[in-house]
Amino acid sequence: MKHLIMAPVLVFLALAQQSFLNQFSIMGTAPNFVFIASFILIFFSCLQKPGKFYHNYQGMFFTLMAGFLLDVFSPYYFGAAISALLLVFMIISVTIESLKQIQDRYLFIYFILIFIACFIFYNIVLYLFLHIADISININQRHGVELTYNLVIASLGFFLYKILFVKNTPNRQLKLFI
């Protein structure tokens, strides 16, 4: 059921990012809404179904769909975003599997830490895929602004998702709607 709701949302975000949200950049950086949305979906999907990533079909579906949307609106060839997101999906899945007893009160901290790691990893992988011939490392304050901007939006998305789809139980264990 969640597939049916979130698939059009991802398409909408991809369109809005391409034509609307990019006009509100800060210091030349704009949030990657498709990445953020897919991250949130994968994160909660892995929480809901802890275990091997290849058994998490819902997470796989969101990963492939978001990857396709990122690639289709990119001027480069297909595959870069799909592959990078699949690696991110594996990282999230493995990390969450190793943190089986995630308490609700620490969930946001876990979310932030995993998001930062995955965002940096995703951008590095994407850069390597697209600039394999001419790699040059140039880290400046814009990258910090970009990370912060994306993190703020992702945090808002996290709480929005929790309000819409997640129900807290009295023992503070995370329970999700299926």
């Binding site: 369109l15 990019n22 006009q23 509100f24 289709v72 060839y77 297909f78 595959g79």
Partner: peptide, 28 residues
Amino acid sequence: LNIFQGPIKNTTYLVTAPFQHFFWKTGN
């Protein structure tokens, strides 16, 4: 996907162009 990259991207842009144009104008 890469073999049919041209038609796939063109069809996607063609379908989404009215929405993108609207978004662009609104954003402006």
